[in-house]
Each structure stands twice: as structure tokens, then as C-alpha cells.
Amino acid sequence: MKNLDGIVEFCSVASVGNFTGAANRLDTSVAQVSRKVATLEKRLGVKLLHRTTRNVSLTEAGKLYFEQTNPALSVLENAQLSVSALQQSPQGLIKLTAPVAFGEAFIAPLLNRFLETYSGISIQCAFSNDTLDIVEQGLDLAIRIGKLEDSSLIAKKLATRQLYVCGSREYLQNNSIPTSLEDLKQHSLLVGSQPYWRFLINNDVQTVSVSGRVRYNSGNALKAAAINGLGLTQLPGFYVRDSIAQGQLVEVLPDYKDKQEAIWAVFPSNRNVAPKIRLLVDFLSENLTDDR
């Protein structure tokens, strides 16, 4: 076959299910992807896609063509990755996403160190607390925390973190120290974006509904409120560990501390992992420490 023009674009649309996701994945415009697919259909003399205003589906011919061409593209991509692996200095753009607070505090500094080591690599990171669709957004990987949803994505565990319930020494002197979960009903609680806290009850992690005067969708804001004596809060260690060590906050209910949550690097399963991506994931795994 002399002309491969449009095949990559068609397979991307077929894999993602829409032109926008394919464009993001290929780092090009929707118009360019549409134009390439239309040219391919004209060259083949068949309609490969049913297009509506909301979605895209494969025609019978499109399904057959995708089944034949997608494996071939994977073979070509593997060949390219094998050659790229021979480079002593990896090159290219890595696009990823990470949670805002954790990403800013821990991922960004590591990305900066990574870039200092590998001058041929560039980074584009979207810090967001939304669970972005990494395939549709054209991202190479995502950093996620906690239990993962069932999906076709591949995940690698990088480290672990733990949740702490804590309050200021002054608050606890004025309101007593809780010794059971039932005692929380007598306290002012500083609640995050989720209306529940996680505890280890009878060796099983369970959620307990919570409410209070203060509700922030920011861990830093909750920590500041707790330090100011407004109540108790439950936050990951990377927010409060230093404040606990410095005496600004005091941990309570340690016997109910939940099991450690995993920090993950997540990849699209239908994409071969380039050496530069593996390099970054290994770097993060080596430099992220547990109990964040």
C-alpha cells in the first residue's frame, strides 16, 4: 500500500469514538482529522463512519477496515518505539494530568527535576481534580489517588498515602479529645468536597457521613481552618504531616486510621507506552515516598 494517509486518523476516531478525542490524541485539529478521514473514504470508495451531531459509529465496512488496519498500525508503532529506545537521550512531549494540591506539591517539583535530567523532553501537565478522560484528552498518563474505577486503563502503583483526623491543640483543650467515632457528633467538623470520612472499622475501610459549618473543596483551606481552631478535619498526610510534627495540629482517633490509599500512574491500554513515558513513571516511582 503506497498511501497510508488518513488511516491513523480513522483508527483514532474509531478507538476514541469521536473526532474531538481523536484530534486531541493526535495533537491536531478536528477539521484536519475530518478532512483526512473523508479523503480516505473517497480513496477507498466506501463510507467508513456514520456521523451525527452527537456521536460517531462505524459502518460495516468501517468495522472490517478497523479490524484489519489497527493491528497493522500497532506493529508500525512498535517498530518506531523500538528504534526510539535506542536513543541515549529520549525526546518528545509528555502530556499528563494530576490532582491539583498533590500535583503542585509533589508532582511538579519532580517533573522539574526530570526535565533537568532529560533536556530533550518537554512536559505539558493539566492539574485538575476532575477525572479527565485521558484517551479523549490525548494524554499520555494520569496521576490518580485512591480506588480506581473499573476501566480498560492500565495502572502502576507509585506510592501510598494515609488520611489523618486532626485539630489544633487549643480546639481540643476546649472541646475534649474524641476517642470513638460516636464522639465526632459532639465536635465541629471541617468537611471537604465529599460529605463523608473514611475509617478503619473492624479491619474494614468504611465511610462515615459527616457535616459541619465549614465545607471547603480545598485541602489547604481545611488545614488552615483546623489550625485556626475551627474544628476537626480529615486530610491526607501530605497536607498535615508537617503541621502535626510542628505541633500546630494534633492527630486524633489513630486507632481508626484507614488503610493506606495507593497513588497510581494510569495509561491508555490501547496505546503502546513509549520509552520516555516509562522513564517518567519509573522516575516518579523512585522519588515519591509512601505515607503522603
Rank of each mutant, 00 (worst) to 15 (best):
4 L>W: 09
5 D>K: 15
5 D>A: 11
6 G>K: 07
14 A>K: 03
16 V>C: 07
21 G>H: 04
22 A>F: 12
23 A>W: 13
25 R>C: 03
25 R>P: 02
26 L>I: 04
30 V>N: 12
31 A>D: 00
40 L>S: 15
41 E>I: 09
44 L>M: 13
47 K>H: 02
61 A>S: 06
63 K>A: 03
63 K>Q: 13
64 L>G: 10
67 E>M: 00
68 Q>K: 05
71 P>C: 09
71 P>K: 05
71 P>Y: 11
73 L>C: 03
74 S>A: 14
75 V>R: 15
78 N>D: 03
82 S>T: 15
87 Q>G: 00
88 Q>A: 05
92 G>I: 14
93 L>N: 07
95 K>G: 11
96 L>H: 14
97 T>V: 07
100 V>M: 11
101 A>K: 15
103 G>S: 02
109 P>N: 10
114 F>V: 01
117 T>D: 00
117 T>K: 13
119 S>W: 05
120 G>D: 03
129 N>F: 01
131 T>L: 14
134 I>S: 00
134 I>T: 04
134 I>E: 08
136 E>H: 07
139 L>C: 08
142 A>N: 01
142 A>T: 02
142 A>S: 07
144 R>Q: 14
145 I>C: 01
146 G>W: 05
147 K>M: 02
148 L>E: 03
150 D>W: 08
160 T>M: 02
161 R>Q: 14
165 V>C: 13
168 S>P: 06
171 Y>P: 03
171 Y>W: 09
186 Q>I: 07
187 H>C: 05
194 Q>V: 11
195 P>F: 08
196 Y>F: 12
197 W>S: 03
199 F>L: 03
202 N>H: 14
205 V>H: 09
205 V>R: 11
206 Q>E: 12
210 V>G: 03
211 S>R: 13
217 N>R: 12
218 S>Y: 06
219 G>Q: 04
221 A>P: 01
228 N>M: 12
233 T>F: 05
235 L>T: 14
236 P>S: 00
236 P>M: 04
238 F>K: 00
239 Y>H: 14
241 R>Y: 10
242 D>L: 10
256 Y>R: 08
258 D>A: 13
259 K>H: 07
259 K>C: 09
259 K>A: 09
261 E>N: 09
261 E>V: 10
261 E>D: 15
266 V>I: 15
269 S>Q: 07
272 N>F: 08
274 A>G: 11
280 L>V: 02
283 F>E: 10
283 F>H: 07
